[in-house]
């Protein structure tokens, strides 16, 4: 078991090496403002409208085939998690790309879930019962949002005012829109939860851009230990650490 001990120690040492903040302990709340302007990992600057100026080849589409669908998705998630005084909204955080990429993988294809029939609607207490996989639910749902917008306001969803977009989304949450193969509330709940997942997951997944989701929430991400701080009375605001910090490149 000595081997294990060494491994843990090594890991901690590597981690400390990658972090210039662990030893510092408490950091005042004031660093948030000065921190937002730079990119932690690449050391590059943001441009004036807050988007990444780096060549991020990852920001392309894996699931959606039409950019208009992706733009509708972007508008919808921005209403669910809007930019405000707290900080960036879903678009700046990269949530639409996060969702697009997740839909192309095991999440979107329900790979580790029971998808054998027969399918019945079920009660509210029996959970997900559609034969559609998540990527299909999103396709049906996004098409449904567009149709509902045209029906209700005679406009594309992306052309609506914010409160009109909210009215459409609310109808989906309230299960007031008929979709083929899935209930609108099932789709909305997937959209809602995927938005939060994109805002707050480790930046390795393409959301939580520059860890600004974590900065807003004062969540420090991945630290190996709080044993020296757990007894402190005061709230400790730490600069966030991504999982990237655990990859050792030497």
């Amino acid at each position: 078991m000595a081997e294990n001990e060494e491994r843990s120690t090594m890991s901690r040492r590597r981690f400390l090496k990658n972090s210039s903040y662990v030893a510092g302990g408490a950091i005042g709340g004031g660093f948030l403002g000065t921190f937002l302007g730079r990119d932690l990992l690449r050391g590059t600057q943001q441009n004036s409208n807050g988007e990444n100026s780096v060549n991020d080849f990852n920001r392309a589409l894996m699931h959606f085939t039409r950019q208009s669908d992706f733009e509708l998705l972007s508008a919808a998630v921005e209403r669910i998690f809007p930019a405000d005084d707290n900080g960036p909204g879903a678009i700046e955080l990269g949530v639409p790309f996060f969702i697009d990429h997740q839909l192309a993988g095991s999440y979107g294809h329900n790979d580790r879930e029971y998808m054998q029939g027969p399918f019945y609607p079920g009660s509210d207490f029996q959970g997900y019962q559609t034969r559609l996989k998540r990527h299909e639910v999103f396709d049906v749902g996004i098409k449904g949002i567009e149709e509902e917008s045209r029906k209700e306001f005679d406009s594309s969803f992306t052309g609506l005012e914010g409160d009109q977009q909210d009215q459409i989304l609310q109808k989906f949450q309230d299960n007031d829109v008929a979709l083929k193969g899935v209930t609108s509330s099932t789709f909305f709940e997937l959209l809602r939860s995927a938005t939060l997942e994109g805002a707050y997951s480790d930046p390795l997944y393409g959301g939580n851009g520059n860890m600004k989701g974590w900065l807003m929430k004062e969540f420090p991400g991945s630290y190996m230990s709080y044993i020296e701080e757990i007894e402190e009375e005061e709230f400790i605001n730490k600069e966030p650490q991504p999982l990237r910090a655990h990859i050792v490149s030497e």
Binding site: R7, S8, Y107, E197, S201, D202, Y205, S222, Y223, L243
Partner: peptide, 16 residues
């Protein structure tokens, strides 16, 4: 234990 060196990933472990 070796499999958990990159385990601080809420999305992968707690959500998925």
């Amino acid at each position: 234990t070796e499999d958990f060196q990159h385990v601080h990933d809420e999305y992968r472990y707690a959500i998925r």
